[in-house]
Amino acid sequence: MIEVKHLTKRYGTRLAVDNISFKAGAGEIVGLLGPNGAGKTTTMRILTGFMPPNGGSATIAGFDVMRNSVKARGQVGYLPERVPVYPDMTVHGYVAFWAKLRGAPNPRAQADQVLERVQLSDRRNTLIRNLSKGMRQRLGLAQALVHNPPVVILDEPTIGIDPQQVIEVRDEVRKLGQDHTVLLSTHILSEAEQVCDRVIIINKGHIVAQGKPAELRRKLQPEMHLYVVLGGKRDGGEKLLRSISGVEAVEASGEGFNVRVKKGADIRTELIDKALRAGYNIQEMRPVMMTLENMFLDIIGREA
């Protein structure tokens, strides 16, 4: 549905997007994850036909965003970073306007449907200037969905709203995956993990990693950590752990030890064996997952 090849965008001499390539299939929810200034908004602006790239190409539902711009734009619903509104229009008038401009067959009825969906029906005739921030965000979502586009592009859809509404918007986005291809950007890792089928991590304009959240975690986790609590004897635990082949480092942590293991090695059998033979018992042994959050910071830190 979305296909991006070697996309590059420069602002003057500053490289904002640097040779990015990725795909999003029908019904897939793909997250662009990156810190401020990573190039998320720029990528989305190219995909929505707002600005042309300096190099590379992108297609939406088979239409090239440069050569067949009008057709490509017709396939997209777009929620920009800052929800753009006409403060003096009513909620319904606003949504119906965008539906009509994008060629929806039945703008007024479709506007009513989408307002139902984002729970703004009771505000149908309210002037937009009187809406709260959370309501505006949902209005922005309504505007992006009203013409039922195959591709939906959402730039930081949960920014600046309260936790309850964040949950609601995320649920709504998850549901979108049933009949839309969704590309959303965020700098919140847990959001990408919860909502997306696939995550693309970008930093300083290029892709540093991509994959399913679980895959990413596996691929990027450098080595396994084990947390072990030994009982039975007081001292010598650290020495024992170090003597096991495959162990790279041991450090005391709380009542037990953090054991860093070489990539691919599995020390668990040997550990149990040796510990029992030396008169220890094992009170606790569990793998320590590096959270995606740590990983994200780690990758970005390595870049810098």
């Binding site: 602006r45 929505t48 707002f50 920009p80 753009p84 006409y86 965008w98 401009l101």
Partner: peptide
């Protein structure tokens, strides 16, 4: 100023 130009320019309108 309101940013609606971005939506207009990404709609199929010329």
């Amino acid at each position: 100023r309101e940013g609606t130009l971005e939506l207009l320019l990404t709609s199929p309108a010329s």
